[in-house]
């Protein structure tokens, strides 16, 4: 009995972890690589993601079956937006906020945190067991309600590891999509990779310094 109880607990924890990995779902897109994700709230899932799970620069993935092959789209949160229907309301509300949830559940749902996701590439599982990693514009499109999961730090590093070393093949695409925040974002990625891969720190530092310099010089 005791053992059964433990297993149930374990399963529940795994379920929770799984839920924690899931941070939201695809809401729409601006382009082939620019997607909008609605971050889960407590009304959507039992254990909603914490703010650090969908922070700026968080690597995310969306897994899909394409032509019987598992393809993991890899992207990054490059921007976020809070949607609040109360913003700009000029008349007072007739009910207290805590009561509104009872009377207007759909209205409350309109309060959202939206995250902009730039797709950086994909990982395609091959039959031989080795994964094909590509930094490019994914040729396939995601669908509304596709589940967005956060990528662990190890998975993030692994996405950048190639035979010839660390690579940021999406550099230009990300700069274009992320606009004014692009350099900050790339600088953030490079500094994380530098920590994980000290043997590559010289060349990564050079990229980081260039980004910092360009960021500074643009405003002058």
């Amino acid at each position: 009995m005791e053992q059964q109880g433990e297993e149930q607990k374990k399963e529940a924890k795994m379920m929770k972890d799984k839920q924690r990995e899931e941070i939201g779902k695809i809401l729409g897109s601006e382009s082939q690589i620019d997607y909008l994700c609605e971050i889960y709230r407590s009304t959507d899932v039992e254990d909603p993601p914490s703010p650090s799970d969908h922070r700026f620069g968080q690597f995310v993935s969306v897994t899909k079956e394409i032509d019987d092959t598992r393809v993991e789209f890899v992207g990054i949160i490059y921007d976020s937006k809070i949607v609040n229907p109360d913003q700009g309301r000029t008349v007072p509300s007739l009910s207290r906020p805590e009561d509104q949830e009872l009377f207007h559940p759909s209205y409350i749902d309109e309060r959202k945190t939206l995250a902009g996701i730039a797709m950086l590439g994909y990982i395609r599982s091959s039959e031989e067991g080795s994964d094909e990693r590509k930094h490019c514009v994914p040729p396939w499109t995601l669908e509304v309600d596709d589940i967005v999961k956060k990528l662990s730090r190890e998975e993030m590093v692994s996405f950048h590891e190639f035979e010839e070393g660390i690579k940021l093949g999406y550099y230009q695409n990300l700069l274009k999509i992320a606009g004014p925040l692009g350099k900050d974002l790339l600088s953030n990625i490079v500094s994380r990779l530098k920590e994980e891969k000290p043997e590559e720190s010289k060349s990564l530092s050079l990229i980081e310094k260039n980004l910092e310099f360009n960021k500074m010089i643009e405003g002058v």
């Binding site: 690579k167 940021l168 230009q172 010289k202 060349s203 050079l206 990229i207 310094k209 310099f213």
Partner: peptide, 19 residues
């Protein structure tokens, strides 16, 4: 020029890193 800021780093290596 930015790729050549560090004499000890081969610009080809930087180019590869950036795809």
């Amino acid at each position: 020029d930015e790729f050549m800021a560090d004499p000890e780093v081969d610009p080809k290596k930087i180019a590869k890193k950036l795809g």
